[in-house]
Design a protein around this nucleic acid. Sequence first.
DNA 1: TGCATGGTTGCATGTTAATGCAATTAAATA
DNA 2: TATTTAATTGCATTAACATGCAACCATGCA
Lengths: 137, 137
Amino acid sequence: MQIINVQPETVFQALSDATRLRIMRLLCLTQEEACLCEFVDALQEPQYKLSRHIKVLKQAGLLSAWKDGRWIYHKLVDDTEFLQQLHKTILLLTDTSGVYDTDLQRFNERMTLRESGRCRIGVQNKTLLSETVNKQR
Amino acid sequence: MQIINVQPETVFQALSDATRLRIMRLLCLTQEEACLCEFVDALQEPQYKLSRHIKVLKQAGLLSAWKDGRWIYHKLVDDTEFLQQLHKTILLLTDTSGVYDTDLQRFNERMTLRESGRCRIGVQNKTLLSETVNKQR
DNA sequence: TGCATGGTTGCATGTTAATGCAATTAAATA
DNA sequence: TATTTAATTGCATTAACATGCAACCATGCA
């Protein structure tokens, strides 16, 4: 239902960005599904930035999503042998800088705030939100 | 001796180009080492173009090379579990357009021209060579 | 030592992509 | 129905990248 015709190079292109690799690594490690606000708190990156990176991963056929009210949960697509192998490969990346580990810790902490397995709060670090200027009228 | 500190995203960045994937796929399939002119005849792409793509792959720690006179042989680096897994993944890419297969056929044909396992001729398709303009004096 | 040849590279050009800001969309709730 | 809020997106800017052309480097051989 998802992947129709993604060029091989598009997949690797999607993985050629440090932030997108952090997202992928986190999902490979945890085998979880998560919404944008949880990614924001785990990676400590601006909401709009992660939103766009997730979009790229989705268009490359690497992620799928389902909607639950205002929350959209993202998870790995793993319905081909290629993708399963790719995930194994991503897990073998050496965490030289320690980011992957830090991301995982913050993610796990953030996951404790779920209620009955669902995200019920928004981004905790408010500085990472895009602000809407008060409309003067 | 080769990989010192290649960022994870640099590896995938190197694979995010169709031509570079063709080079990698060919080497994964054949487990061979080959010189530039052999790649040129196999992929039917300009010499300078492949030269630069091979350089990118080398800088990403994916290829290594050794010199034999005027010929330089390139081969896969596979001294880590990550790289071995990566090669498996590349082999699982579906050859939707059939390029990988065509490349392999032309490569195998080209390999029959080797003498005692060595390349002894240059690029066969001369239109793929960069030409030097005659110097007027 | 000069030439042929395998391979590399500087320069110019067009394209794609990442990011920040701020506005917008969409769904739940008061 | 107005407001809050999770998420997306248009716009502008900057940087990175692929490519073609033609010159250049480097090695072996006449």
